[in-house]
Design a binder for these strands. Structure first.
Length: 204
DNA sequence: TGAATGATCAGCT
DNA sequence: GCTGATCATTCAA
């Protein structure tokens, strides 16, 4: 079941939490890729010093001021693309950053796009997953209720969710301490793969 | 730990 | 319109 418009027309925090355990799908010309969302962060507009929309509407953030259920993508550090899901109703600029996926369909295509072979190196970070999924700035404003990029429920899967502090938002003062990052509890596919690999090797 | 790398935005003229 | 600082990251070393 594809998530409908109503799913997105709620608080960014609710959407961020409920996206964990859902399946993100990109039906691209090169092939279909998908993955289970295992890490998200909520960005809450006017009350959130870490949010791009904190300072108001700009050319870049204007999609956040429309209806929920659209894609907000932006270039970060001049070289990587991050994908967000716009949440809530018009005039409330909240969104959810997708930070990591557990690869599902199209793994071979992901390996080619990423030039990596380890399953954990494909989607374990916001810049990595957009590369693996073939998502670019050109997808800015795409409707998630359409057929190219969408999110759907996974049958019979009730995820265990943990809330933590967001990553790399130290500039945001108090907002840096809010528990607005959500992960699939104990998932091996969240960002910060290096640490996980060390633990994995150590366990052997 | 630091380099890569370019759009975005505030603060000017 | 121009300029400089900034940045929701990744990778190699």
């Amino acid at each position: 079941m594809k998530c409908n418009r109503e799913f997105y027309l709620r608080s960014g925090l609710e959407v961020a939490r409920d996206l964990i355990g859902k399946k993100l799908v990109h039906n691209s010309p090169e092939g279909l890729t998908s993955g289970i969302i295992v890490e998200t962060e909520a960005y809450m507009g006017a009350i959130d010093a870490a949010a791009h929309s904190y300072k108001g509407l700009t050319e870049r953030t204007k999609i956040q001021y429309g209806l929920g259920g659209y894609v907000y993508v932006y270039l970060i550090y001049g070289m990587y693309v991050c994908m967000n899901v716009v949440a809530n109703i018009e005039e409330i600029p909240e969104c959810v950053l997708i930070r990591a996926l557990q690869p599902l369909d199209g793994v071979d295509l992901m390996k080619i796009r990423r030039k990596k072979n380890n399953l954990r190196d494909l989607c374990s970070g916001p810049g990595k997953l957009t590369q693996a999924m073939g998502i670019t700035k050109n997808h800015y404003g795409i409707d998630l209720c359409g057929d190219e990029i969408f999110i759907e429920e996974v049958e019979n899967f009730i995820p265990n969710i943990t809330a933590t502090k967001r990553i790399n938002v130290d500039y945001a003062g108090d907002a840096a301490n809010y528990l607005w990052r959500f992960i699939l509890t104990d998932s091996e596919f969240i960002s910060g793969t290096k640490l996980l690999n060390l633990n994995f090797e150590g366990d052997k």
